[in-house]
């Protein structure tokens, strides 16, 4: 199984802790699910799944606090359907009526090296060999191609990415060792309408977080 390494950098990041979602507070390091989404932004097909194995933290963990005006409402699908059926309905949202000021505690100046491999799901068509997807990914990531720009937790925190050929030759991770506590591993989408979060006990050892396999006992709902 070939492992790929992406270097992701950006001026800001916010990997929101699920328990602190209103006034967003980021985790100290990138979550496996955010890392997976960065790989998927470059290549994803229904036949494959990315597995994040290791997250290396390359810059010291620093924070910035920011408060923004946000809209509290979402599009009401019921109103849309009523309006579509040529009924009558008010659709637009007025920010003055639906305003929330929400603070965020974001990370700043982040850089990570993410190691992941791709699995071709059983039941995929026979011409979907791992080799095919691996070559596609190498081509795309090597040229800086992507389906949409990868981002660090939120779309406004775009990430610059680079395919790392030889991770050994790169600058080492930070020398910090820390217990990060329980951290979101990823969401379980086996019931698409009701994704369930699953967690693992994250340990950063000399800047490296090893991510247990999705199926291992360490990952709990």
């Amino acid at each position: 199984m070939k492992t790929y390494c992406l270097e992701l950098t950006g001026p800001y990041a916010c990997f929101t802790r699920p328990e602190m979602k209103v006034e967003r507070v980021s985790y100290d390091v990138m979550t496996p699910s955010a890392a997976r989404a960065c790989f998927e932004a470059i290549l994803w097909k229904p036949a494959i799944r990315w597995h994040v194995r290791k997250i290396e933290v390359l810059k010291p963990i620093r924070w910035i606090n920011l408060r923004r005006n946000e809209v509290s409402g979402v599009v009401s699908s019921r109103n849309v359907e009523t309006a579509m059926k040529s009924g009558v309905g008010e659709l637009a949202q007025y920010i003055e009526d639906e305003r929330q000021q929400r603070a965020g505690l974001f990370l700043r100046d982040v850089a990570y090296r993410i190691h992941a491999d791709l699995e071709v799901l059983p039941g995929a068509a026979s011409d979907n060999t791992p080799m095919k997807f691996q070559e596609m990914f190498e081509r795309r990531a090597g040229k800086g191609q992507c389906v949409n720009q990868p981002y660090l937790g939120c779309r406004e925190f775009a990430a610059a990415f680079r395919l790392v050929g030889d991770a050994e030759a790169e600058a080492p991770a930070i020398s910090e060792t820390r217990d990060l506590g329980f951290m979101l591993h990823d969401l379980d989408f086996s019931k698409p309408t009701d994704p369930q979060p699953r967690f693992f006990r994250a340990q950063m050892e000399s800047g490296v977080v090893n991510v247990p396999a999705w199926t291992s006992d360490e990952v709990r709902s």
């Binding site: 979402v74 599009v75 699908s77 019921r78 309408t193 009701d194």
Partner: peptide, 10 residues
Amino acid sequence: AVMSTGTNCG
């Protein structure tokens, strides 16, 4: 935009 239907589908 986000719609008020279940998760993600909207």
